[in-house]
């Protein structure tokens, strides 16, 4: 029987499990059957949110390994997704260091900066160093829709975070 402590521990590890599961499993956020250009990157949203709100839930090492796994599953050169994810982590950590109180609007704006640099690095490394051709349009659509869906996940994760942190500071 799972006791309350174990359940709490699993809930605490939720973002980490979700990140690894998304990188490892077949589940994707590319809905080409419904709307050809609709694709977004949930991993970037998870990393940005949890690194900026509760960095102890998502360490840099895990972000790095999730990126490596994602590269193997997708078929990208090893390390490219890790770099892309770490750039998002870097911006999130910087924002966390610079700001005291954040609202969804400030998070949304800074998230745009994070995914812009993240996808820019992904595009430059892929087009400059690998034989894989990626379309700027596809990357732009992906960036756009990731940004559009950010508020939805922001509210979802904020609610989850409130469940996790309830009673912790009492």
């Amino acid at each position: 029987m799972l006791n309350l402590k174990t359940i709490r521990k699993i809930i605490n590890l939720g973002p980490l499990i979700f990140l690894y599961y998304l990188s490892l499993s077949e589940i994707d956020s590319h809905f080409e059957n419904y709307f050809e250009i609709l694709s977004f990157n949930i991993q970037l949203i998870i990393i940005y949110f949890w690194v900026s709100k509760r960095p102890e839930a998502l360490g840099g090492g895990h972000v790095f390994f999730a990126g490596l796994i994602n590269d193997v599953v997708i078929g990208f050169p090893l390390g490219i997704s890790s770099l892309s994810y770490l750039v998002v982590s870097l911006v999130a950590t910087y924002v966390k260091n610079m700001t005291v109180n954040t609202r969804i609007t400030t998070d949304w704006f800074t998230f745009f900066i994070a995914i812009f640099f993240s996808n820019l690095i992904l595009f430059i490394l892929l087009s400059r160093f690998s034989e894989i051709t990626v379309s700027v349009t596809e990357i732009s659509y992906n960036t756009f829709f990731t940004l559009i869906f950010f508020p939805f996940f922001w509210f979802l994760f904020t609610y989850y975070n409130s469940i996790v942190t309830t009673g912790r500071n009492v």
């Binding site: 102890e56 840099g60 090492g61 790095f64 390390g79 890790s82 770490l86 160093f129």
Partner: peptide, 17 residues
């Protein structure tokens, strides 16, 4: 809870790449 700094991980990822 962090064992590595971001700059260290970025360097490792670049080397692997």
């Amino acid at each position: 809870a962090q064992k590595f700094s971001l700059v260290f991980l970025i360097i490792i990822a670049s080397i692997i790449f």
